[in-house]
Write a protein that binds this DNA or RNA. Structure first.
Ligand code: MN
Ligand code: MN
Ligand code: MN
Ligand code: MN
Lengths: 218, 218
DNA sequence: TTTATTTGTTAGGCTAGTCTAACTTTTTAA
DNA sequence: TTAAAAAGTTAGACTAGCCTAACAAATAAA
């Protein structure tokens, strides 16, 4: 397929597409932490290979082919994370960095075997969907905990941020995927929310936290 | 540590050292499948980093530091192979190529966890020793099946060749690590050997095969 | 609707890793 | 012990991926 560098550009483009349909060179440069001339050069190469649509001074778009290529890397990343947690016993806060390396392994049979061994999981340890071999996945429409009304019962289904810092915070608070939460009051001043769940009969989560938790209303 | 390319040069140097104490630039070039100027350049870089002893027109030698670095890669390779077989259910003929990729993963905790999960195995699926974190391992002195006298009882302990072709041959013949073999006659003409073991009460192995099987006399 | 700011491009240069062609040393065989 | 062969080196060039400095185009502000 591509070099590790090009795979990382594709992945970055895929994630930038979640925010907007058209991507600026500058944004891609910021994400990849490289200069504008560097990204400009690279963009021409990605275009030559048919992964992106590119015209001088126009915004970038992944082609279908590019999106599919990106999804394969995301698939490998998420399968790896799930495998590291489920089979190898790592904590959900430890796996991202290892998966950043594993996602570039070419041997497809490694990932197919992981998949099979785990019984074809549909989400990774952080609740993000695992694309299938054709790059398809179903995007369930969860709500942010911050958008749920008072006195609702919800279940934590996914995270909008999988940084180690946030995951360690969740560990400390005893919050996991599947945790059932009941919302009480929302403080109008700072939008903090009082909730109860298994570990806590009454505790407050800041809006910064409730904005990162994706929940299903039950 | 090093780039993937440099890691592969170090590994090649380590394996060439098993044959001779001093390595020629030409041999290293052949192993790495690169031209002499390429290897000449690289050798200077490896020397600058203290991994090899190098003087113009003199043969190459790994330094202690270089040998240790090489052993870490071998360790990662063999742990990976063993993990792929024992935990993931791959056949011993499938794992080498995957391990060639996995050995370059930087995340040490991945390999430490594999090691732990398997109970600190001392050999890989082909009977090659797995170095510990300091690069040490014990080199048992097995005999080649071709060197064992007639009417001996031996156990297959390791392979001198782990190529897919040879492994597939062994699969077909029902030969594995641990197989107990009794030797009968050695044909003087071509040094082929008649043996019996679990799958066969009487079968002949060519010298090409008996030269690749490392056995322990019991 | 000019001017200022942001965004994108070009030119030129650097390292890592590779090559071929040509040359020099060392080794081997006459 | 000299000539041929092999091994090693140098010079110059190429791609991938990165950079800074300088400039051009597009967009936003005045
Ligand atoms: Mn991740
Ligand atoms: Mn994840
Ligand atoms: Mn191997
Ligand atoms: Mn092996």
């Amino acid at each position: 397929m591509a070099t590790i560098t090009k795979e990382n550009y594709l992945k970055a483009l895929y994630f930038l597409h979640q925010k907007s349909d058209a991507i600026s060179l500058t944004d891609l440069g910021k994400t990849m932490e490289v200069s504008k001339p560097t990204v400009n050069d690279m963009v021409k190469k990605l275009h030559d290979r048919g992964w992106i649509k590119y015209e001088k001074y126009k915004p970038l778009k992944l082609t279908d082919k590019g999106r599919k290529a990106a999804m394969q890397i995301v698939r490998k990343h998420r399968l790896s994370e799930m495998f590291l947690v489920q089979v190898m016993g790592f904590g959900w806060e430890e796996v991202h960095d290892i998966a950043e390396e594993l996602e570039h392994i070419k041997a497809d049979k490694l990932f197919d075997r992981m998949d099979e061994l785990m019984g074809f999981p549909s989400v990774d340890p952080h609740g993000s969907p695992i694309p299938d071999k054709n790059g398809n996945y179903n995007k369930p429409n969860y709500k942010l905990l911050s958008q749920v009304p008072e006195n609702s019962k919800v279940v934590v289904r996914a995270l909008r941020d999988s940084s180690t810092e946030f995951l360690l915070y969740l560990n400390k608070k005893g919050l996991q995927l599947g945790t059932e939460i009941v919302t009480h009051q929302i403080e109008p001043f700072d939008k903090s929310i009082t909730v109860s769940y298994a570990s806590y009969s009454e505790t407050t989560l800041s809006s910064s936290v409730s904005n990162r938790l994706l929940v299903e209303v039950v």
